[in-house]
Write a protein that binds this DNA or RNA. Structure first.
Length: 420
RNA sequence: GUGGGUGUAGCUCAGCUGGUUAGAGCGCCGGAUUGUGGAUCCGGAGGUCGCGGGUUCGAAACCCGUCACUCACCCCA
């Protein structure tokens, strides 16, 4: 009989690991709410066309990484590879643009991409992301970047670097691309095979090729940031000034080009050297045209997404507590003790006291061993001796101090006399 | 999709140029303590050596295939 195993690149998060995940998720929620972002819960799957149209049909994600399957009526559905598309769809569908207050959302949940798994990369992975709609003011960019930076700093993730660039407006890129392309074609012989192909399809991507030869070539390439329109230039300068004003350190990276088609103007990425080959923790940027592209009104927007697995990989182990919060263990044994123990256990729990028991243990020794393993603070010993005189023995498992207490009214007695 | 590394007990790993009953540490169960945990001592259980084939008198080891995990390329969070 072959046992059924989990899917490649899809991992279980076991009870030992969930405290660290809750710690990260709680911090993300707390920071998002503090910045005025509201949680939105969007579906795990959508019509395939949504992702094809928003992410860009020639990106790797759409070309070969999506989990796409037919619905029963034949329409094509896809497990979400990222969160922005669905959020924008919901924003349009519920006409949120008509709401007079700024529409600022955050989401948290699994994403799916069919890639080869490696360190920091899974097929089902988790992202926390925010989207700020309706504000083209550079302060919206600053806010989003600040939120990301403060969150990651709060978690004490090591050796973070914020890199930033401006992709300019659509017109700027249209004017810049021919310049870059002609520069590249002069150097074509020195470029890697991949870049020669990219030269035609997406010349911007040549800029962040990792091949050393390509990097030396592009070192002297014309820079997009030198060809920004006055508006785009001003916007970028204001973002940088704002980051300086609030003390968020950044590094200009003219090579930074995001992979998804919808980005414009501000583009940023937070990296760390502690992540193996996948050094990006989180990234984002402005996507002013996307809402309109997806059939909504013309609404500017800016956002980011961070990878929770990658945050988890970097989280210092001492920064969160994984201690068991179960305080009491009911060690009921013997015929009468077992019977009374069942009731006591329920009473303690109803009184809000976290209480454990192992029903497989039949001797006091076995019970205490389990209480120890479960890291309980107190054991409530209840054998036939106690049962016969209507009492229990409260044992402090650290100090070993024991005292006899009446069974009647025990929950409230414990609540008042035991400081937890 | 491409390349490298690794698959031996619940976990971490030994196992020499092929040699007969496959080992250790930790963990687990039991006892020393018939109502007192962690420490110590003693005892015990637990393995299709990833799977399939081949070479050989003999394979955990060598060869071929296959699967899984893992790291990296590509790309991304």
């Amino acid at each position: 009989m072959d046992t059924i195993k989990g899917i490649k690149g899809v991992k279980d998060i076991l009870p030992e690991e969930t405290p660290r995940w809750r710690f990260i998720e709680d911090a993300a929620r707390r920071w998002a709410l503090a910045y005025g972002y509201q949680e939105i819960r969007i579906p795990i799957f959508e019509l395939t066309a949504l992702f094809a149209r928003s992410i860009g049909s020639s990106t790797d994600i759409v070309e070969k990484e999506m989990y796409t399957f037919p619905d029963r009526d034949g329409s094509s559905l896809t497990l979400r590879p990222e969160g922005t598309a669905g959020t924008v769809r919901a924003f349009i569908e519920h006409n949120r643009a008509a709401d007079p207050v700024p529409q600022k959302y955050f989401y948290l949940g699994p994403m799916f991409r069919h890639e080869r798994p490696q360190a920091g990369r899974l097929r089902q992975f988790h992202q926390f992301g925010v989207e700020s709609f309706g504000t083209s003011d550079p302060r919206a960019d600053i806010e989003v970047i600040a939120l990301l930076w403060r969150l990651l700093s709060d978690l004490a993730l090591p050796d973070l670097t914020l890199e930033i660039n401006s992709l300019g407006g659509a017109g700027d890129r249209a004017a810049y691309k021919p310049l870059l392309r002609s520069f590249l074609s002069q150097q074509e012989s020195r470029l890697c095979e991949n870049c020669r192909r990219r030269m035609e399809t997406n010349p911007l991507r040549v800029l962040d090729c990792k091949v050393p030869d390509c990097r030396t070539v592009t070192e002297s390439a014309p820079r997009l940031t030198d060809h920004l329109s006055p508006d785009a230039r001003t916007h970028f300068d204001q973002v940088l000034e704002g980051l300086t004003a609030i003390g968020v350190p950044y590094r200009l990276n003219p090579r930074l080009v995001r992979g998804l088609d919808y980005y414009c103007l501000t583009s940023f990425e937070v990296t760390s050297t502690h992540l193996g080959a996948q050094n990006a923790v989180g990234a984002g940027g402005r996507y002013d045209g996307l809402v309109e592209t997806l059939g909504g009104p013309s609404v500017p927007a800016v956002g980011f997404a961070v990878g929770l697995e990658r945050m988890s990989l970097m989280l210092p182990p001492e920064s969160f507590s994984s201690t068991n919060d179960c305080h009491f263990y009911v060690a009921a044994f013997g015929e009468k003790g077992t019977r009374i123990g069942l009731v006591l256990l329920d009473e303690l729990r109803r009184a809000g006291l976290s209480t454990q028991c192992d029903y497989r243990s039949t001797t006091l020794k076995a019970h205490l061993r389990q209480a120890d393993r479960l890291q309980c603070r107190y054991a409530i010993l209840l054998g036939d001796d106690e049962a016969n005189c209507g009492s229990i023995t409260l044992r402090n498992l650290e100090s070993k101090a024991q005292e006899n207490l009446p069974l009647a009214g025990l929950p409230s007695l414990l609540k008042s006399r035991v400081s937890l």
